[in-house]
Design a protein around this nucleic acid. Structure first.
Lengths: 155, 155
DNA sequence: TATTGTTATACTCTATAACTATA
DNA sequence: TATAGTTATAGAGTATAACAATA
């Protein structure tokens, strides 16, 4: 078979000549997608999506918090928090009790606690698998670097 | 004003007690989102989206390549490549010439080359800004780590 | 006047399935 | 039989605007 066009090879990404090789943003995006896909598949076996599991984690450590605080921390807008919290409540994982006329204190139900335990097992194994590619100090340096980047976001 | 609920503070993410503090996947996702937002805003001033600019970069270094190879490298499905390539052609940035009955060799038009030059200026400044947070060797280590993670994706 | 929560809506990105035509 | 390209479509995720109720 005769090649009638220039072939783009996967390995070109490793070639320093390639335009993407030195782009931190590109590699960050790809690596993040790989981890998110793995986490998503794991959490799907438990019936949660990554964002839902993250919300349960936050409510577990800070019971009585309100959904707008969760949204601010996770970078999720008020308008998008409503259906997320609504569905977690509808599934019986969290309960809301009014703290004033507009806010509701959130806490895990028993079902939510055990669902979170299942999720945490998946998250822990997921993290172990990826962090095992690096030494302890490399892993810490990676997280520190990611925080540095995140912290640079415009207010 | 009396506080009637437990407040979740942004700074909790830095607190080692917090459930997200040691999650590499979480920090990767947030950092990637920050960089992608910045890049997206920069490229919007030039009329391109990040994926479009990336495609132009690849076609520039490997003129005559075909769209399915681009899709494989960037992790974009055939079905989603079609409208991307179609719109780049409609905007006059690339041209297609048939190499056999089913594939088209892609190359940049003059308009595509100058558009890419504009995009590259934005990309370069974007990358400089973020990579300047790190030493040269730290930056290289970061990219190597991201590649390690990306390479671990299931076939 | 600012905040909380909600609904409606739109846009992007991504994923699948089905089809054609070609190799 | 596998590949290249296309269309249609559905699902996430995310963004804005508008509104009611409350602080």
């Amino acid at each position: 078979m005769q090649l009638r066009y220039n072939r783009l090879m996967e390995t070109e990404i490793l070639d320093p000549e390639t335009p993407l090789a030195e782009l931190l943003g590109y590699h960050l995006r790809r690596a993040s997608a790989v981890m998110m896909t793995d986490l998503g598949e794991r959490l799907a076996t438990v019936g949660l999506r990554p964002t839902e599991a993250t919300i349960l984690l936050l409510i577990d450590t800070t019971p009585g918090c309100i959904q707008s605080d969760i949204g601010r921390i996770l970078g999720i807008q008020r308008a998008n928090m409503a259906p997320l919290i609504g569905s977690l409540e509808k599934n019986g994982f969290i309960s809301r009790s009014p703290v004033d006329g507009r806010s509701h204190a959130l806490s895990l139900t028993d079902a939510g606690s055990s669902k979170l335990a299942e999720a945490r097992a998946q998250i822990d194994e997921h993290e172990r698998n990826f962090q095992s590619m690096f030494s302890k100090s490399e892993g810490a340096a990676l997280i520190a670097a990611m925080r540095k980047i995140s912290a640079s976001a415009k207010a």
